[in-house]
Every structure is written in structure tokens, then in C-alpha cells.
Simulated scan of single mutants.
Amino acid sequence: MKDFFYAIQDLFVNVLFAPYDALRALELENWGLANFLSWIFIIIGFVAMVYWMIQLKGFNDNNEEDKSISSHSFL
């Protein structure tokens, strides 16, 4: 069973995190290039938030949302 957990450790440390180790080595030379992946994730998150807000505004403009003020039945 111990070998199973060592295999998982080997997979993550030597295979899946290898690109991040390369980025860490690159950070000493070029900050912008090393943080490129982080900027990509920030841009994706920002675009998703803008899309979400546009969708919410569309539902709000069509009066599709129930805005009645009431408590839950269990209260």
C-alpha cells in the first residue's frame, strides 16, 4: 500500500507539476513571462464575471426573477 502512495507522489511531483517547476526557474529571469499563466486565469475569471453580470441584467430586465419578500416555510 505504501508503494501506491509513493506512485501518486511521483506522479504529481515529477509529472504534473513539472511545468510549474519550469516557470519557477524562469521567474528569476523574466517576471512577466513567469506570471503569464496567472494572468490568463485572471482574464478568464474576469470574462466569466462580465458574462454572468450581463446574463443577470438580462433576467432582471425581463422581470423573470421572483422578488417577493417572504421567509422560508421552516421559519
Rank of each mutant, 00 (worst) to 15 (best):
33 L>K: 09
18 A>I: 00
59 F>M: 09
57 K>C: 04
72 H>Q: 12
55 Q>W: 14
56 L>M: 13
62 N>Y: 10
2 K>A: 06
43 I>S: 06
27 E>V: 03
60 N>M: 07
25 A>T: 07
8 I>C: 02
56 L>S: 04
51 Y>F: 11
1 M>W: 08
9 Q>A: 07
61 D>T: 14
58 G>E: 14
12 F>S: 00
42 I>S: 04
4 F>W: 05
9 Q>Y: 09
31 W>R: 15
67 K>M: 11
7 A>Q: 11
18 A>W: 05
69 I>C: 01
33 L>N: 04
61 D>E: 15
23 L>K: 07
6 Y>N: 15
17 F>K: 00
72 H>L: 14
58 G>P: 04
12 F>R: 02
26 L>W: 06
68 S>R: 14
32 G>Y: 09
17 F>H: 02
39 W>Y: 14
64 E>H: 08
10 D>T: 09
13 V>D: 00
66 D>G: 01
14 N>F: 01
8 I>N: 00
11 L>T: 00
14 N>S: 01
26 L>G: 11
4 F>K: 06
28 L>N: 09
15 V>P: 00
71 S>L: 15
54 I>Y: 10
17 F>R: 02
66 D>P: 01
49 M>L: 15
23 L>P: 02
54 I>E: 13
74 F>C: 07
38 S>N: 15
34 A>S: 15
1 M>D: 04
44 I>A: 07
36 F>I: 08
57 K>P: 01
7 A>T: 12
58 G>V: 12
41 F>V: 14
17 F>M: 03
56 L>T: 07
30 N>K: 12
44 I>T: 11
45 G>L: 08
27 E>F: 08
24 R>F: 13
59 F>V: 07
34 A>Y: 09
28 L>W: 05
71 S>Y: 13
7 A>K: 12
35 N>H: 15
49 M>G: 03
34 A>P: 07
47 V>Y: 02
